[in-house]
């Protein structure tokens, strides 16, 4: 607990002193412009209507609400992954990974501290995004507030679960740019952020099913889509199971990845 608290406080200080504005503007722009394109297409081309396939797949005709929630969820996911998965490679690049390995602190509380701090800043960023969407004229409703809370829990478990093996991968490869952007573009396609996954070809759909974020999104849709009458709890359970499995795999490969990173910096 003390490791988690200390990491939380340290990361808050870093954020307050040197907030990464360009990252923030970049991710916010991606979200806002995704909503913008959908809105312009919906009004100028669709005439304020969508095809029957969308209504059949989602149980709702609220296309703009669907895309806005998806864009906000994608912003949440990318920002959280940037924080949690890149925590250790940032230590490595700044030369503090050795100190981290020398302390008796365990990895999981450290990563949870990073997660807690990331959640607090990401919440602010998502609020800004949703407010901008509101100014643009998107009306959102939350028919199931309790389910929304569950969706936030599910999304956090999913993101942390995916970030830990990713962190190991980045440390082992000594590279973050390609890994993170490949994951972001793949997730944007496979997980059903801005369109229902039933649009995808069968093989791609299976890939999406293997990612916990896809299941977290199902809980989120149940909470936010008016008229989507689905039971969110099976998806919630699958999300926690999958996220937990990713987390366990990640923690088990973190040690060899750290060793590899150390050997690399010793050689350099």
């Amino acid at each position: 607990m003390s490791v988690m608290g200390a990491t939380f406080v340290r990361n808050w200080r870093i954020t307050v002193r040197a907030y990464p504005w360009t990252y923030f503007v970049g991710t916010l722009a991606t979200g806002v412009l995704t909503i913008g394109v959908s809105m312009l297409a919906y009004r100028a081309i669709g005439g304020g209507r969508v095809g029957a396939s969308f209504t059949a797949a989602t149980g709702s005709a609220d296309y703009l609400g669907y895309v806005t929630i998806g864009a906000a969820a994608l912003t949440f996911t990318t920002r959280m992954v940037l924080w949690v998965a890149k925590a250790q490679i940032t230590e490595y690049r700044e030369g503090t990974l050795e100190s981290q390995l020398l302390t008796p602190a365990r990895r999981l509380p450290y990563l949870l501290g990073v997660t807690a701090q990331a959640l607090s800043t990401t919440a602010v960023e998502i609020t800004v995004l949703v407010a901008v969407a509101g100014v643009l004229g998107v009306r959102l409703s939350v028919p199931e507030p309790l389910t929304l809370l569950a969706a936030t829990v599910a999304a956090t478990v999913a993101v942390v679960g995916m970030s830990v093996p990713l962190s190991a991968l980045m440390l082992a490869a000594g590279e973050a740019h390609i890994t993170q952007n490949t994951l972001f573009t793949a997730m944007a396609l496979l997980c059903g952020f801005t369109f229902p996954t039933s649009y995808l070809p069968q093989a791609a759909r299976w890939l999406g099913e293997a990612l916990p974020v896809t299941w977290a999104l199902r809980v989120l849709r149940a909470a936010t889509l008016p008229g989507a009458d689905v039971d969110p709890w099976p998806a919630f359970a699958v999300c926690l199971l999958l996220g937990g499995a990713y987390l366990l795999v990640g923690l088990s490969i973190l040690k060899p990845a750290e060793r590899r990173a150390l050997h690399r910096s010793a050689r350099a």
């Binding site: 959908s38 081309i45 669709g46 969508v50 095809g51 396939s53 969308f54 895309v67 396609l189 369109f195």
Partner: peptide, 22 residues
């Protein structure tokens, strides 16, 4: 990345393109 983004864009605007007015 451009290919993955292209596919995601296509599917995102598809519901609108399938509307009767489009």
């Amino acid at each position: 990345w451009p290919l993955l983004t292209l596919a995601a864009t296509y599917y995102t605007v598809l519901p609108v393109m399938e509307s009767a007015a489009a």
